[in-house]
Amino acid sequence: MALDIAFYLILAAILVSAFAAIHVRGHLNAVIILSVFSVLTTVKFTFLQAVDVAMAEAVIGAGLMTALFVTAISKTRKRTWRAR
């Protein structure tokens, strides 16, 4: 039963983090929230017995996509840090 409650809490957290990822100000914040969203999704998938999908979501959503997003964001900002 406690497991069920945890599952529903995670579902709520997924919705909240998805909403926040779109509405939060600042690109980097949004991407960090997006990776939190991915991690929560991973946990949800393990609850639903989808272990392979959970692993893929963890690696792609939280790992690879975050890296690509951060790189893209660093390329689309005005050159403050690039003055090397």
Binding site: V51, D52, A54, M55, A56, V59, I60, G63, L64, A67
Partner: peptide, 21 residues
């Protein structure tokens, strides 16, 4: 066990990115 070519391949890619970063 859970996992396979895709998951492993993506985590290898993440490691390469880590080296770069």
């Amino acid at each position: 066990s859970p996992g396979g070519g895709f998951q492993g391949g993506v985590s290898l890619a993440v490691l390469v990115i880590l080296i770069h970063v």
